[in-house]
Amino acid sequence: MSKIMIVDDNRDIVETLKTIMEMENHQTEEAYNGEEFLGKVESARPDLVLLDVMMPGLKTKEILARLKERKLDLKIILVTVVRFSDQEKRILMTDFNIRDYITKPFDVPELITRVRAVL
């Protein structure tokens, strides 16, 4: 059993991800924006973060930069609607410790496979 932190501004998506992760026997914690996530992450110490890319408030880049500053070695899977270029993927992986990404609307079996692979 691992601890998964779900970060998304859409409550239904958070609820859905929570259901899926619980089906996989994981413990979950939620945050609905970047600030809340950054406030909770240190005490929560998640094994994996499912991070939405487009939330109101703090931009994803900023969230990732602050995590890097704090030297929190987190495993992150980005949940996104955008397509990353190979170069972007490289930067995301080497500079920000992004392990994988999944596009919305995602496939449940695909999400489960990717989460298992990263954990």
Binding site: N10, I13, E15, T16, L17, V81, K104, P105, F106
Partner: peptide
């Protein structure tokens, strides 16, 4: 457009 489709499809 894609956000609402996400929980629909997953559920």
């Amino acid at each position: 457009l894609r956000t609402p489709l996400t929980p629909i499809k997953a559920q």
